[in-house]
Write a protein that binds this DNA or RNA. Structure first.
Length: 452
RNA sequence: GCGGUAUUGGUGAAGUGGUUAACACGCUGGAUUGUGGCUCCAGUAUGCAAGGGUUCGAUCCCCUUAUAUCGCCCCA
């Protein structure tokens, strides 16, 4: 048997329905914010990603899917969304577009050569946004608000927004030096990994899991104290805008993100839910004012976030959120003999073209099995074909909720079905004194003080 | 790259060094000669991840590999 590759998953059934639903919510929210969809290639020149992330991490050496193509070009499957979007921005000269800034969103698969674990796969799906060409704090706040509002639309409650600032490059470099000088005398107290980090990527010492309880960690210098006046003012502005947007956040000085290109605002949105694995950051992002020029474009500022779909859906599952997945069909067409079968396929097509969601029998089950199958599919109506009825241009149709059965002329079937299905839609609702429909236990929307 | 735990049918799973591998769900058929959802009956694993070893004998013990899962590194 050929089996799937490590760290990949087949998405099907109800799970797939959930993903499609979340996709639709993402599309809707992005549309309201006027982010335009962008699709960039899944594979790019290796150099794009290597230049993007810099040399200070393991990423380049061991965590990308690299291969040589038949033309002996070094190719890499995209490990994240930003680099491709920025490449596209430069290559298509979007900086020259009349409408600035450029606001785009993506939603697609990424590839990372990692050891799979909770919340971590080799093929993963991320969506995210990139805004290129605005340095305004307002857009920083907006970028944070987009995932927050998507999560809100989905009903996700246990989220924690952590923000921090690295300041501009001057502040950032300043801070880095202070941090190294602070930790160097204490190097013996640090764990093995942090000893390496001190040289490679000292900022990441701050979110070490092993050393986090040490005294020296608690007293470590904080980025915020080493900002120059301008960087400090920026951060304050962002916080003000977030307050205006009513977005709760925590200033967490240990949020540094791993890569060199970040500056100013950085943020992580955690799923603060019981039972979530160690990888509980579902969305993260920040400002990357140096990246466009690093990749060969004009000096352009940028900001964005990315969100892992798999982790997001796990979070929804863990909170027990039931997404509105439509798992019923309008009608199941049943038949027994060949003559009825021909009518069945014809009728199905006609009903589908008229907007009904219709199924029929494909595996030669007996009538009994067809009833079972119709129930499994949650069919609202059952259409039972019978040669005798067909001679009169009629079919039997049974309402699977009320069990009421009728014989209907084929010419009127569509109207009859519409009527039956409409009644069912209101079945869950009640009509209150003021005459309006609403679901049980829901407040009446009429605004008057009616007794419902 | 490193470590922990696991791997029995379509599914959830019990189980023991020794003839036919529980039980449940599901599915198919029958009781009901064209009307199901309840009930009853029947059928449903050349087989306990793969390979090797220990043994008279292994699904059960040992080793290796694969896969899954969780964690470390890293985190875009």
């Amino acid at each position: 048997m050929i089996i799937k590759q490590k760290g990949t998953h087949d998405l099907y059934g109800n799970e797939a329905k959930k993903w499609k639903y979340v996709d639709r919510v993402i599309d809707e929210v992005m549309d309201k914010y006027n982010y335009n969809f962008i699709r960039t290639p899944i594979f790019e020149a290796t150099e794009l990603f290597h230049r993007g992330v810099g040399e200070s991490t393991d990423i380049v050496s061991k965590e990308t899917y690299d291969f040589m193509d038949r033309g002996n070009r070094s190719i890499t499957l995209r490990p994240e969304g930003t680099a491709g979007v920025v490449r596209s921005y430069i290559e298509n000269k979007m900086y020259g577009d009349a409408s600035q800034p450029i606001k785009v969103y993506y939603n697609g698969t990424m590839y990372r050569y990692e050891r799979p674990q909770s919340g971590r796969d080799r093929e993963l799906t991320q969506f995210g946004i990139e805004v290129l060409g605005s340095d305004d704090e307002l857009i920083d706040a907006e970028v944070i608000s987009v995932p927050v509002n998507i999560f809100k639309m989905l009903g996700l409650k246990g989220i924690k927004v952590n923000i921090n600032t690295l300041g501009d490059n001057e502040s950032r470099n300043n801070y880095r030096e202070v941090l190294v000088n602070y930790f160097r005398p204490h190097i013996d107290e640090l764990c093995e990994d942090c000893k390496k980090r001190l040289e490679m990527n000292p900022l990441r010492i701050l979110d070490c899991k092993v050393d986090k309880d040490l005294e020296i960690m608690k007293n470590a210098p904080k980025t915020i104290d080493y900002l120059n006046a301008e960087s400090k003012a920026r951060f304050e502005n962002i916080k003000t805008y977030l307050d205006e947007l009513n977005i709760e956040y925590i200033v967490n000085p240990n949020i540094v993100r791993g890569l060199d290109y970040y500056n100013h605002i950085v943020f992580e949105i955690e799923a603060d839910i019981e039972g979530f694995g160690s990888n509980n950051v579902i969305a993260a992002g920040g400002r990357y004012n140096g990246l466009v020029s690093t990749l060969g474009g004009p000096e352009t500022c940028g900001v964005g976030f990315a969100c892992g779909m798999g982790r997001l859906i796990s979070a929804l599952d863990l909170e027990g959120i039931e997404l509105p997945i439509n798992d019923s069909i309008d009608a199941f067409v049943m038949y027994v003999n060949d003559e009825e079968k021909k009518e069945a396929i014809k009728l199905c097509q006609e009903l589908r073209m008229n907007g009904f969601k219709v199924e029929t029998e494909y595996t030669s089950r007996g009538l009994k099995g067809q009833f079972k199958q119709a129930d499994r599919l949650n069919s609202k109506l059952l259409i039972i074909l019978n040669s005798e009825d067909l001679k009169n241009n009629e079919v039997k149709i049974k309402n699977n909720v009320t069990k009421k059965e009728d014989i209907i002329n084929l010419d009127y079937l569509i109207y009859y079905m519409d009527e039956q299905l409409n009644e069912m839609m209101y079945d869950d609702e009640e009509t209150c004194d003021c005459g309006c429909h609403h679901e049980h236990d829901h407040e009446c929307s009429c605004g008057d003080d009616c007794e419902c």
